[in-house]
Nucleic acid binder design. Structure first.
Lengths: 229, 229
DNA sequence: CTTGACATTTCGTATACACGAAATAACTAT
DNA sequence: ATAGTTATTTCGTGTATACGAAATGTCAAG
């Protein structure tokens, strides 16, 4: 059943498509062609063609005009890429002087080139970390993933304290801004006020007050003291 | 004059061809199509086509039926790949538990994927090494290369002491054998005897005697105490 | 000189992936 | 139901790289 997923069976493009489908279907919905085209910065026509090929290879389930989901094999590939990507990010930050706003692009290229051996060596050197520098969970070598349920800071009630756990963006300008403001995984903040209609969020971090756009607050995933997380 | 050699201007294949031409022309002779095809494990017809494209891009000089040499731009690319490759090997050995017989393939893939930034970070962490684990010199970021002239162990006179400086192969089975025998860069050996007609070489290393095939002795590049190297 | 033998190039073709334009399916609002 | 909008697919193409078969150039031996 399990197709040959070892090395070099899949092209870089295929790996990128599967990763994208993984992310787009995280909400349980099938991923549309346009969505995918947008995410991969390709023309919809190109995506349509690639979807056909990946479906033929048994990596995607495709319901024409309905979108795609990952097959078990496809998910395996996506999770392996995710593990690679996040471990590489963690390694580059820990050992090669990268900052969380600069690792993404490097990891994006390396994830297609490293061997399983190298990935596992990096994991070992890092002490088998469970999260990357953005707080994103790192899948196990077997494809297991301990996905926590966090609350976007945008949804944390006013007056509530919260601890930032994940910062869900890979855009370096945003990451730079956020780390400048101390809004990194592990930081504790208190929501002081929020404007209605997706308005900005005012929060207290340490002794400073900070106002951030709702758009950013959506990316800061938090745990609330008292909840199990 | 200097063409755009930054990132992504060149395909992986192009980089591999230029590297191969670099190695094949080390003796001063132009590299033939068949030679190149052999080195890259491709059909001569494919090489012929690629040669044309690389010549059009100003990376190779091509005299039809005569072979190719690198242009200045081509050499720049080749030396950058060489720097990448050797630094990556050095880094993997120093920090990620690789041995010199296992690094080659990994470096071969990574050299196409790492950014200049990452290469220079690795160089820095390593303290800007001048040689890789095989004793091969690492070109500078500017493309400078301090190539030493060494004597193959196969040519060292009987009775002479020599220090191994470079081990000129990337085949892991040979490398494993050689390191098992202690024949690594820095080792001091004394040639005890040699059979005629490219026969095996008997040598003394430490307190042990060792006989190695001439083929291997050709790959062990040595400096002789007393010579300037 | 001429003739093999061998190296090299040319030619037609295949695969993987991208594109735009045009055709088609699906949904939405009347 | 049906027309318009939007999403998706199909089709014809282009680029990069590989291949084998056939044509052609080169050189050494006679």
């Amino acid at each position: 059943m399990t197709a040959d997923l070892s090395r070099d069976t899949l092209t870089r493009s295929a790996e990128d498509y599967l990763k994208a489908v993984y992310h787009l279907t995280a909400d349980g919905e099938a991923a549309g062609t346009n969505q995918l085209a947008e995410a991969l910065d390709l023309a919809p026509a190109s995506v349509s063609g690639m979807i056909r090929r990946l479906a033929e290879q048994g990596l995607l389930d495709h319901a024409p005009y309905r979108g795609v989901t990952l097959t078990a094999d496809g998910r395996r590939v996506a999770l392996r890429m995710l593990r690679r990507h996040r471990l590489i990010e963690a390694y580059l930050v820990a050992h090669l002087g990268y900052t969380w706003d600069t690792v993404h692009d490097e990891a994006e290229r390396l994830e297609h080139a490293v061997s399983d051996t190298l990935v596992e060596r990096m994991a070992k050197v890092l002490g088998d970390p469970l999260e990357d520098p953005h707080g994103d969970p790192i899948p196990g070598p077997d494809g297991s993933l301990a996905e926590m349920v966090y609350v976007p800071l945008a949804d944390v009630p006013v007056g509530q304290e919260a601890e930032i756990r994940r910062v869900h963006t890979s855009q370096s300008d945003r990451l730079r801004y956020l780390s400048g403001a101390g809004l990194v995984p592990g930081a504790r903040v208190k929501v002081v006020a929020r404007e209605p209609f997706a308005g900005p969020v005012r929060l207290r971090i340490g002794k400073r007050d900070q106002v951030i756009a709702n758009e950013l607050a959506l990316m800061l995933l938090c745990s609330l003291p008292g909840s199990l997380a």
